[in-house]
């Protein structure tokens, strides 16, 4: 464990806790993409299968359970909670997210480290996570006023993988870890998708004005 990976995991944990708090306290999921949340459930289920087969550390196990539980909980709130589901921007959240699943799975069948079920699913989860934020970013462009909690949620979510990139650089040079091309490229694509959001988020934070993405 290094400071970059710990910071990344904490940023990721904070992002899902922030989102859950926003939904629970405001009883609203306005501005949040259900499609992105559902993609994240698939990402975590596909990636954390080794939860039952390999024990790395207490931390690793607890964090996997937390990420699976929170992502399922958020989808439950947005789909079934009688008050929250009324606030879902169904007409704006129109990205057909099931379209990205087959290509990611096919790519995982073609490009992977080993051709085993666990490895292909793990690789699939990396590719899917790289594009999972797309529905949310598209919804943001369509949302007139983005509330602070949502903006902070997306910033922390983007920051976590950016910190993981630093973690991989650290591990490659300091721990002489092997090259992890699949993780690196997926992580780069994922972080690159946040580039314009980061730009507008930091600009709004500097000028102390409302976050607004150009349509």
């Amino acid at each position: 464990m290094n400071i970059f990976r710990l910071a990344g995991d904490m940023s990721h944990l904070l992002s899902v806790i922030l989102l859950l708090l926003k939904i629970r306290t405001t009883k609203s999921c306005a501005g949040i993409s259900l499609k992105t949340q559902e993609l994240y459930v698939v990402v975590f289920l596909a990636r954390y299968l080794n939860l039952f087969t390999r024990y790395y550390s207490f931390y690793n196990t607890v964090m996997k359970l937390v990420f699976i539980a929170t992502s399922v909980c958020i989808v439950w709130y947005m789909r079934f909670h009688k008050v929250v589901k009324q606030t879902y921007n169904k007409d704006l959240d129109t990205f057909r997210h099931y379209v990205v699943i087959p290509p990611c799975f096919l790519l995982a069948l073609l490009v992977h480290h080993e051709f085993t079920v666990m490895e292909v699913l793990w690789t699939f989860s990396l590719y899917l996570e790289a594009v999972a934020i797309l529905p949310q970013l598209i919804l943001l462009q369509r949302t007139r006023n983005i509330d602070n909690l949502t903006g902070n949620y997306i910033f922390l979510l983007g920051a976590y993988r950016a910190l993981y990139l630093l973690n991989w650089i650290y591990r490659f040079f300091m721990e002489k870890a092997q090259a992890r091309w699949i993780s690196w490229i997926s992580g780069l694509v994922q972080t690159a998708l946040y580039a314009d959001f980061f730009y507008y988020y930091i600009k709004s934070w500097k000028n102390n004005e409302k976050l607004k993405l150009p349509a």
Partner: peptide, 10 residues
């Protein structure tokens, strides 16, 4: 292709 990296990350 290389052996799969250790999955100790989240």
């Amino acid at each position: 292709c290389q052996s799969s990296p250790v999955k100790d990350e989240l």
